[in-house]
Design a protein around this nucleic acid. Structure first.
Length: 644
RNA sequence: GCCAACAUAGCUCAGCUGGUAGAGCAGCGCUUUCGUAAAGCGCAGGUCGUCGGUUCGAGUCCGACUGUUGGCUCCA
């Protein structure tokens, strides 16, 4: 059974299909389900749909609704279902959908007017019960979500029980766009993306850099408290490193191409080496290399077809797609005793991944990003405790920032997929450790098979952006595979070598994505400790400049981020500018204030707060920064900024 | 990568069916010295994303590329 709203939307998608067939009788239909915010219908059609077509279809849909067609359900045997589909010339996709219905389950059709569709239901009783709808956009969508299949045209729309609710939803969408981090990032000068630098590569401008630096300071403090050591590693590493970890060539499609040493490139060019051959030789390894890795894993991890004689191999470097191999090498750089464990290595490590061009999105999906990464090397007995420590760190971060609207996903392996490597017994152990740890969070979580990393299960924190898209932020991943592949060991209490377990974790995920989401979370109204400019001094006239300069120096000396507005504007204009730039506090200085060594305070949240002594204000601001206080909710009237 | 739309000044946008660009805001200058969300006047700012094609002539038409947006696919 569907909810009443789902029924409306689902029925509306049938009305859409009815209209599509009236306008384009040759259209082949696939499916048209309701979604969280509306509905869509996937259609195979030679004609390329345009915005004008949407308007036309909306008109026809209104006619269908006005005809007040009843929805009727009919259950039929499979043979008859097939006949109905063929008779309607809808066999291209609908027969496949019919085949999806398991034997023994009811096969039903829903009919409204002349339109009949294979459909489990349920629906509203009459088309007139669809009171408010709108078609929103056209998009391409692969049949069954598989890029090897035919790409269909998807029409998105939404529907509500009343016109008011539809209007409310549309204004909400409009509001959401105003806090889009891409818009605020430009308006508040937080970051810049330049096509000459490259798509998906973030330039952190001074304001954004303050935000990022404050977050990094915050997390560094937490790391010290939790016994982490901070490290630095370079942005590239030799191919052999990633051949050992298994990231190359397995993930080569999502990496920047290797950097091949000049000497090799010259030789290859001279010898007329083809691209295919070159790729093959870059991906190859030596016999010794394969033997070593295979001996460690006890499996045919490196297959014989990748082995070439030494003189055929091409060496090179990779822009690092992840930090773990570098951290592994730090762990492995000295002998380790069980007494040393856990070893916790943290780094704000920048990694580069070749995301598909169509996937790039502001700061939330980029090609170069800095993870607040750390790798914990511990004994199998310590895994549970360490996961809990990581989760509490993530929770501390999210709580401090007032981000409570997230969901937790425990990513498990898909037993049918070959993507996941390693010992099934250890997987079971790690999966149950993750599940148990997630339970302690006190937050509902979902278990999702197939969402694990190739080396182990993980716990992800997923948050929604302003238009409802989900982004993975913090992550904690257990790894029994990489320590084996790299031959890591520590000496146990029994004086023999043991393999440590690794935990990968990043409470923010990446600074870029996190800041993007944070900008939207606060709509640019950052808490004082994060605000790029915390305070602005507004002298009422140039006559007050002397006192303003002295006040500026006083606040700067107190380590506050403050500026002085020296424009010869009227006070109202200066205030307006500060409000639009979302400065948390402005200090208005006039003759009265100068005499009392004070300032008239206007806060972003409360507006005019009256006159206070400068020294009292400094104490107040410093306190607010030190406690990382969250911004107070704005009064509604103040939030409605006049349109420029 | 795929489907589609879009790309004009720092920002937001105008520029009809082809006849070599315009506004508001921001910026700069001058005047104003002002009490809680926009003072006045003036100036400057664009090889119309890039490259190629059609044309006597391209911001406008066509193609390729780059980038952006909304989806799809992907996301170690």
């Amino acid at each position: 059974m569907m909810s009443p709203l789902e029924e409306i939307r689902h029925s509306c998608s049938h009305v859409l299909a009815t209209a599509v067939l009236r306008v384009f009788p040759d259209a082949k239909l696939d499916i048209g389900p309701p979604t969280d915010s509306g509905f869509y219908y996937d259609i195979d059609l030679d004609h390329q749909l345009t915005a004008d077509d949407l308007a036309k279809l909306e008109g026809v849909m209104k006619e269908v609704i006005d005809e007040n067609q009843p929805f009727s359900r009919r259950e039929v045997p499979r043979e008859e279902a097939e006949a109905i589909i063929r008779e309607r010339k809808q066999e291209r996709y609908k027969l496949g959908r019919l085949a999806d219905i398991p034997a023994g389950e009811a096969i039903s059709f829903y009919q409204n007017g002349e339109f009949i569709d294979l459909c489990a239901g349920t629906h509203v009783r009459y088309t007139k019960q669809i009171k408010a709808f709108k078609l929103l956009s056209i998009a391409g969508a692969y049949h069954r979500g598989d890029e090897r299949n035919q790409q269909l045209q998807r029409i998105y729309g939404t529907a509500f029980a009343s016109k008011d609710e539809l209007a409310h939803y549309l204004t909400q969408l409009e509001q959401a766009r105003l806090r889009d981090h891409r818009k605020l990032g430009r308006d508040l000068k937080l970051f810049h993306i330049d096509e000459d630098v490259g798509a998906g590569l973030i330039l952190w401008t001074p304001n954004g850099s303050i935000l990022r630096q404050e977050l990094q300071n915050f997390i560094s403090t937490e790391l010290r408290r939790q016994g982490y050591a901070q490290v630095f590693t370079p942005h590239i590493g030799r191919l052999a490193l990633y051949k050992t970890s298994g990231h190359f060539p397995y993930y080569k499609e999502s990496q920047f191409p290797p950097i091949v040493e000049r000497e090799f490139l010259d030789q290859l060019t001279a010898s007329g080496c083809s691209c295919a051959e070159m790729a093959n030789r870059i991906e190859a390894v030596s016999q010794q290399f394969a033997d070593r890795v295979n001996a460690r894993t006890g499996q045919n991890t490196i297959t014989p077809d990748r082995i070439l004689p030494d003189d055929q191999l091409i060496d090179g470097f990779l822009l690092k797609p992840m930090n773990c191999p570098h951290h592994i090498k730090i762990f492995d750089s000295q002998p380790r005793s069980y007494r040393d464990l856990p070893v916790r290595l943290a780094e704000f490590g920048t990694v580069y991944r070749w995301e598909q061009s169509g996937e790039l999105n502001g700061m939330t999906r980029v090609r170069g990003f800095t993870q607040d990464d750390a790798h914990l090397f511990c004994t199998p007995e310590q895994v549970q405790t360490e996961i809990l420590g990581c989760l509490s760190l993530v929770k501390t971060v999210l709580t401090t920032l007032g981000m409570s609207d997230y969901r937790v996903r425990v990513g498990l392996r898909d037993p049918d997929s070959s993507k996941f490597t390693g010992d099934p017994a250890k997987w079971d152990q790690a999966e149950s450790a993750c599940r148990e740890a997630a339970k302690t969070l006190g937050v509902p979580f979902t278990e999702e098979p197939g969402e694990a990393a190739f080396y182990g299960p993980k716990i992800d924190f997923v948050i929604k952006d302003v238009i409802g898209r989900e982004w993975q932020l913090g992550t904690v991943q257990v790894d029994y595979v990489l320590p084996v592949r790299f031959g890591l060991s520590y000496i146990g209490a029994d004086n023999t070598a043991h393999t440590p377990v690794m935990i990968h974790r990043a409470p923010f995920g990446s600074m870029e994505r996190f800041c993007g989401v944070l900008i939207e979370h606060f709509a640019g109204d950052f808490p004082l400790w994060l605000a790029p400019e915390q305070i602005r001094i507004l002298p009422i006239s140039d006559k007050l400049l002397g006192f303003a300069q002295a006040t500026l120096a006083q606040l700067l000396a107190a380590d506050l981020r403050v500026s002085l507005d020296t424009h010869s504007d009227k006070l109202g204009a200066k205030i307006r500018r500060a409000e639009l730039e979302k400065i948390p506090y402005v200090l208005v200085l006039g003759q009265k204030e100068a005499e009392l060594l004070s300032a008239s305070v206007r806060s972003r949240a409360k507006g005019d707060e009256g006159v206070h002594k400068i020294e009292d204000l400094i104490a107040r601001f410093k306190q607010e920064v030190a406690t990382r206080a969250l911004p107070e909710k704005k009064a509604l009237a103040a939030a409605a900024a006049p349109k420029s």
